[in-house]
């Protein structure tokens, strides 16, 4: 038996909006730790890792570990039927081939349930090693989204370079080239407006902008994004989900042949 009650149901809608462009079908794993997902895009270039901790739910019952295969477009269709202020409860019986999403309006005057068929998905779970990153950039998520969007209008790839000068996002395309340099800035009114660049050693990596732009669909989940770079590893683009967990996107770099 599984029963997860999320008072801020809109969070789940935002989570789906953040990942459904990247991943079509995925297993949601439920354990005493929380509600989680790990999935790659179909070409195995990017990986998404989601965790919503059990403590973040108003009620969290998961009698045994359960993996539920869902089509994310269909899940998003169902969640779209909830009101923005609704409480969402996810329910499933052991061995059932369906999951139920129950939506309650804040005043309890409207209660709906939507049942969705589950699917069998062969999923591969990957071990993500703990790593030391050469550079970690913490910046406003809206600013990162704008940079990715702007650069994608010029080129297909972005070179992210971190040096003593700051962090540089560069692209080049048929019509020209663009460079955006951000310097550390902590003299801001609100902490979420700060740009903090932590550099252990200089690093420069190239990534496909199409994926970066897809990751920025998570912007409504957090005012801050953290980008961790290492020359030997995929970049990590992390959006924290307030008091609940995170979405982390991993993207393999482009490699010079």
């Amino acid at each position: 038996m599984l029963e997860l009650r999320l008072v801020q149901g809109s969070l789940l809608k935002k989570v789906l909006d953040a990942i459904k462009e990247l991943v079509k079908d995925a297993n949601f794993d439920c354990s005493t730790t929380g509600f989680s997902l790990q999935a790659m895009d179909s070409s195995h270039v990017a990986l998404v890792s989601l965790l919503l901790r059990a403590e973040g739910f108003e009620h969290y019952r998961c009698d045994r570990n359960l993996s539920m295969g869902m089509n994310l477009d269909n899940m998003a269709k169902m969640l779209k039927c909830s009101g923005n202020d609704d409480i969402i409860t996810i329910k499933a019986d052991d061995g059932s081939d369906s999951v139920t999403f129950m939506f309650e309006s804040p005043t309890q005057d409207k209660i709906s349930d939507f049942e969705m068929k589950l699917m069998d998905i062969d999923s591969e779970h990957l071990g993500i090693p703990e790593a030391e990153y050469h550079a970690i950039i913490r910046m406003p998520s809206a600013e990162f989204a704008k940079i990715c969007r702007d650069l994608a209008s010029i080129g297909d790839t972005v070179v992210i370079s971190v040096s003593k000068e700051g962090v540089k996002f560069s692209t080049r395309g048929d019509i020209g080239a663009a460079n955006v340099v951000l310097r550390q800035n902590t003299t801001v009114d609100k902490p979420e407006e700060a740009t903090i660049i932590e550099m252990n050693e200089p690093v420069s990596l190239t990534f496909a902008l199409r994926y970066m732009n897809s990751f920025t669909k998570a912007t409504p989940l957090s005012n801050i994004v953290t980008i961790s770079l290492s020359s030997e590893l995929p970049v990590v683009v992390e959006y924290k989900i307030a008091e609940m967990g995170y979405i982390r996107f991993y993207l393999a770099p482009k490699i010079e042949e």
Partner: peptide, 14 residues
């Protein structure tokens, strides 16, 4: 042109 890397060459199946 640079070649796109693959997640599976960095993270192993468990």
């Amino acid at each position: 042109d640079a070649k796109q890397g693959n997640i599976l060459s960095f993270f192993k199946r468990v």
